[in-house]
Design a protein around this nucleic acid. Structure first.
Length: 589
RNA sequence: CGGGGCGUAGCGCAGCUUGGUAGCGCGCCACACUGGGGGUGUGGAGGCCGCAGGUUCAAAUCCUGUCGCCCCGACCA
């Protein structure tokens, strides 16, 4: 049976709440798809639910096609598992932890690596059981520090997550094979959903290579930064993006003597620049300063130096230093170890055997650097690498350790230039290898009866984000409302009788029944509203095809057919009643 | 976590400075007119002014606390 508008719950609104900033959020609220219950928590009303279910159905079909098997794991998870893998710490505040009546802590799952690995440990015992790919679609919880943009960053959301288990990385049945299958399935899913996407390299983790990819919808409202070479042969997210070779010159001569300047309370680069302008009358640019960041790996201090206007990339520094456990140093601890946090300069490394010094090429230059004086409330100017560090017996290592920026050279070394855009992450595929099977001591026996940790892959899709991205995408909305891709639209056809009475009732029902017999879902606007109201609402909720029933067309035994995306003209077209079903079937399938 | 702001009807907002019986637009209900792009009129309903204390004859308004929400920043999927 076709849905009658009056029987559904579609609370459209003329105005969006003031706190809805981005188009998808505003339109989902105005179209009556969702209702906010609290920060980052939404009820899905009928239209929202239908859209999400359409996306889920496509995902299911493609997962099944790719050989994955659906299961459903608990949201409510023993905290011990999270402690064993170290992710309680790693997730930190983003992990929801609840106590039961006995005071035991449980996590509300933000993802399910621990749970699925435990499951595999219980039932997958032999290489004969491999490979195996399990997936689920369910609710995840993340205590986002700052939920925003409606459904794009919420605290409770729908995710498809798949996990695969393998004996080997390569070859038949290997992790790479399944990874490629999932990758291909993702492409089909997003194509069927009708959303434009780009695939970028993401931070790969322990085994390197192309071990992780993110699927991004290009959009100014995205929160992830993507860099693409203008040669079209490289794309990566900002955490991952390497930068091509850049000139360096550590040996440049100084332009004057090192001078200490009192800079009371100037803890940041910005502070120092303001101080120079205000108190010294000198215009100091951030790019003429050196930012010296103190990190720690085990007992070793690792200092990363980047230009004042650049950002340190921790993952790059970690790789350059060869220290997998490198993190930003605790401030108090660093102070105790002799680092004047806020006033650190690269020459702090001089004479210290417990410090490794790394410098980004853009910072490894001559010039008149202003940087910390390694004493509280003091900076120095005219810092010079050769004189103040190298001649003092410390050799800094030059390495790419900063985040890439628009205009940087491509790592492909083909003259390409990186360009920065923003995107919404809708999918992520990742080779986990044995991280979790080791942590949770899951083993299988191989052909030689040896016990080994199976390799894992994980593959996630943000279902809500598919819906929001479909609206955010180019052509996904206009000044009147949403424009759905046909495959994830809440309904494919909206029948709008100008008057819902008499022969129009019968005609609407007849067309709806005929369309539904062809597998097309239909919403009938049976409300006793003025035509203008119905048309405005139709545009707002964005159903791809609208059949308008009115006297004018009926006099010619016709109806009006209009595509929401304008593909059959701004006013649509007149179609004979007998022909409209066939025409829609052809257009939709 | 730092800075800023906001909580008054379903939504958008005014009222607060200078305390004196709570207002506007949209939406909602009834009736009439109207009837192909949010129409018009008349009449209505709807608020513990986030919550708790305090000051006062009197608090939406002033004070204190608290909770919630939002924005910017730092942090992070």
């Amino acid at each position: 049976m076709a849905t009658k508008w009056s029987n559904s719950l579609i609370p459209t609104a003329r105005q969006a709440p003031a706190d809805a900033e981005v188009p998808s959020h505003q339109l989902m609220l105005r179209a009556g798809m969702i209702r906010k219950l609290g920060a980052g928590v939404y009820t899905y009303l009928p239209l929202g639910l239908r859209a999400i279910q359409k996306a889920m159905q496509i995902i299911r079909q493609e997962m099944d096609q790719a050989g994955a098997i659906e299961i459903l794991m608990p949201t409510f998870q023993p905290i011990e598992l999270w402690e064993k893998t170290g992710r309680r710490e790693a997730y930190g505040q983003n992990l929801f932890v609840v106590k039961d009546r006995h005071g035991r802590e449980q996590a509300l799952g933000p993802t399910h690596e621990e749970i699925v690995t435990e499951l595999a440990g219980a039932y997958i015992e032999s290489y004969r059981d491999l490979p195996k790919t399990l997936y689920q679609i369910q609710t995840k919880f993340r205590d986002e520090f700052r939920p925003r943009f409606g459904v794009l960053r919420s605290r409770e959301f729908q995710m498809k997550d798949a996990y695969s288990f393998h004996l080997e990385l390569d070859g038949p049945g290997g992790l790479s094979e399944t990874y490629d299958k999932q990758y291909a399935a993702y492409c089909r899913i997003f194509e069927r959903c009708g959303i434009p996407y780009e695939i970028v390299e993401a931070e790969a983790g322990p085994i390197g290579g192309n071990a992780s990819h993110e699927f991004m919808v290009p959009s100014p409202t995205g929160e992830d930064f993507i860099l693409k070479s203008d040669k079209g042969n490289y794309a990566a997210n900002v955490e991952k993006c390497e930068i091509g070779p850049r000139p360096r010159n550590l040996e440049a001569e100084s332009k004057g003597d090192l001078a200490v300047i009192d800079t009371p309370g100037c803890l940041t680069i910005e502070d120092v620049c303001k101080f120079f302008k205000k108190n010294l009358g000198t215009k100091l640019k951030t790019q003429n300063m050196l930012k010296t960041l103190v990190c720690k790996a085990g007992d070793t201090w690792v200092i990363g130096v980047v230009r004042g206007d650049h950002e340190l990339n921790e993952a790059k520094l970690r790789k350059a230093a060869g220290e997998s456990d490198l993190v930003m140093a605790d401030e108090a601890e660093a102070r105790d170890a002799g680092f004047a946090i806020g006033f650190v300069g690269p020459h702090v490394a001089v004479g210290r055997t417990d410090v490794k010094l790394f410098v980004d090429p853009d910072a490894a230059q001559g010039g008149f650097w202003v940087t910390g004086a390694n004493a509280a409330d003091q900076h120095v100017k005219l810092f010079n690498w050769q004189r103040d560090v190298i001649d003092q017996g410390t050799l800094p290592e030059v390495a790419d350790i900063r985040n890439a920026l628009d205009g940087d050279p491509s790592p492909k070394e083909d003259g390409g230039i990186l360009q920065m855009t923003k995107g919404i992450e809708i999918g992520h595929v990742f080779k986990l290898c044995s991280k979790y099977t080791q942590a949770l001591n899951v083993q299988v026996v191989n052909e030689n009866n040896e016990r080994i940790n199976p390799l894992m892959g994980c593959y996630g899709i943000g279902v809500n984000r598919i819906i929001a991205s479909a609206i955010e995408r180019d052509g996904g909305n206009d000044e009147h409302g949403i424009i759905w891709p046909v495959n994830i639209a809440p309904y494919q056809v909206l029948i709008t009788p100008i008057k819902y009475e008499g022969e129009f009732v019968e005609l609407a029902d007849k067309l709806a029944t005929a369309l539904e017999a062809q597998g097309i879902d239909v919403l009938i606007d049976d409300r006793q509203e003025r035509p203008g109201v119905k048309f405005k609402d139709a545009d707002l909720i964005g159903i791809p095809w609208r059949i308008t029933l009115g006297d004018k067309a009926l006099a010619q035994e016709s109806v009006e057919l209009k595509a929401r995306n304008g593909s059959n003209g701004p006013k649509g077209e007149l179609v004979k009643i007998d022909a409209v079903v066939a025409q829609l079937v052809a257009a939709i399938q």
